[in-house]
């Protein structure tokens, strides 16, 4: 029985940096988890009043509605460029972008490579769900070989449409980047690890150690055509093989950060 007269302490609650409004995301979409992890990290660091987010185009286009922090909306793919400008003008603020794979790895690939190579002092939260969610599940640069999408009904043919782009590996080769990791949101354990990575990425920026990016493997139950629970299993069974989790670049200064 739930006994309510015994004193309790709250061990988990909605973070303050998260706005009280209900998100437009589909049931089970891990965008909500990623939002919450970012909000928790900002709460813990006491940076809510000092943070500026840059939203992308895609399902996360309304991210500015869901955080109790300052937010701007960038043109498609241009969030790293906008964040660069904000950070250079206001270097004492914590500046992060929140981008999906269609935004970051397709139209915005030039921007992200530029920002990472310059070693801009920004943090990028990159949601990789292997599809274009907002526009109806078309093939994205990150779609897996053989993956059926609304624009590749017979499955992605790598001889015609190329291979998926592994963003974390790609950006880790640049001298300018400092902290590049890939995490997943498909279960409790990995979600906890993702939270720690997001916190570390913000610490990297706070200490002026350079460009940080956290790639989060995410689901899209609606466009993958499965239930929320099945979509998380699909991440584990299909996506992890092609997108191995791990720390792709941790510069020596970053390795000393203790959380």
């Amino acid at each position: 029985m739930v006994v309510t007269d015994i004193p309790t302490k709250i061990v988990y609650e909605r973070p303050e940096a998260l706005d009280p409004r209900v998100t437009h995301y589909c049931p089970g979409c891990t965008h909500g988890v990623a939002h919450r992890l970012v909000a928790e990290a900002l709460d813990e660091m006491g940076e809510v009043e000092n943070t500026i987010g840059v939203a992308s185009v895609g399902c996360s286009v309304f991210a500015y509605n869901y955080f109790n922090i300052d937010f701007v909306e960038a043109a498609h793919g241009r969030a790293p460029a906008m964040a660069t400008g904000i950070k250079r003008v206001l270097p004492d603020r914590l500046v992060f972008t929140y981008q999906g794979d269609g935004d970051l790895a397709s139209i915005g690939m030039g921007e992200i490579v530029g920002a990472a190579s310059r070693g801009e002092q920004i943090t990028v939260i990159f949601i990789n769900n292997a599809t274009y969610g907002m526009t109806g599940g078309q093939m994205a640069p990150t779609s897996l070989p053989g993956q059926v999408t609304s624009s590749s009904p017979t499955g992605r043919d790598v001889t015609r449409q190329g291979h998926p782009i592994q963003t974390a590996e790609l950006l880790s080769t640049l001298t300018g980047s400092s902290y590049i990791v890939r995490r997943s949101l498909h279960n409790f354990r990995e979600t906890r690890r993702a939270k720690k990575a997001i916190r570390t990425a913000f610490e990297v920026q706070k200490q002026g150690l350079g460009f940080s990016l956290v790639e989060l493997l995410s689901n899209c139950p609606t466009n993958w055509g499965m239930s929320a629970v099945e979509s998380r299993d699909w991440i584990e069974e299909r996506m992890l093989a092609f997108y191995p989790l791990g720390d792709y670049k941790v510069s020596s200064a970053v390795a000393d950060i203790k959380i």
Binding site: T8, I10, Y12, E13, T30, H35
Partner: peptide, 11 residues
């Protein structure tokens, strides 16, 4: 995904 749950632990 929607931060709907608050967890209370008995002291």
């Amino acid at each position: 995904p929607d931060a709907a749950i608050t967890v209370h632990r008995y002291e």
